[in-house]
Every structure is written in structure tokens, then in C-alpha cells.
Amino acid sequence: MNLTVNGTAHAVAAKPDTPLLYVLRNELGLVGSRYGCGSGLCGACYVLIDGRPMASCDLPVSFAVGKQITTVEGLAAKGELHAVQRALIAEQAAQCGYCMSGIAVSAAALLAANKRPTEAQVRAALDKHLCRCGSHNRVVKAVLRAAHE
């Protein structure tokens, strides 16, 4: 199978029903997408499939063939982090950071579709992402900050 991840084509050996997450982490070494639950309920493993945020932990890799896969590692462009990532750092919007890759990916998709989201829209867009450290309000502030950059 061939996958296009962060703009680069890769031939992968995994079986078609392997969840995309394990192909990304173990075969391609892209460990930014994190394992959280294996059933699409926590958001830690989110990636963009043709620009749409989706859980990769229960998505068969065959589904992503022929589509553009963007992981957190692919948000940066020309050596510079994405505006959302820069804002997350500027707001110190994390503690352990384990949930942040998925959040960054979803927030980037939100801003691509809606350049000036309201606070309620940001919260709604991130509601599938669980954060246990309680960084929610700083994350929302960061996404709004990125929208105004």
C-alpha cells in the first residue's frame, strides 16, 4: 500500500485493516500522534485526512490510501511551526502535553475552515479532545490568538 503523509509518499507493509495510528508511529516513526484509547473517544491520535480531523486509532489504514494524511509533524511549514502551535507555546497552554498533538491538528482544521471562530466554536471544535491536566482555557485562548495572527 502507498500512503501520502505530510506530502511525502510512503510504501507501507501493514495489513489493510491495521489502524492508521500504528502505521504512523511504528512504521513511519511519526510518534506525534498519541495512543489514548483505541476507540476514537479521546482525540489524542487525531490526524487530518484530506483536511478533515479524524481519529487514527480505529481507522483502517486502507481507508487513507489515496488521501492526504497530515499529522502534527506536518503542520509546520518551511521550518516554522503552525500558527496554532506557536500560539499554544506562547500561551503555555499545556502541562503534560500528551493530548496536544490531536488538539493542534483539530484547531488547525478549524482555522482553515473558519478564520475567525468564536470562543464557543473553538470549544465545540475541541470537544472530542480530552485534556486531563485542565489546560482547556489556555488552549481556547491560544486558538483564538492564532486566529488573530
Partner: peptide
């Protein structure tokens, strides 16, 4: 700012 945060946010 937290020293290790940028690497985490970049997905390293």
C-alpha cells in the same frame, strides 16, 4: 516558558 514544551507541541 516551559523548556520542554516546544518539542511536545511539535509532536517530537
Amino acid at each position: 516558558p516551559r523548556l520542554e514544551l516546544p518539542a511536545k507541541i511539535a509532536g517530537e
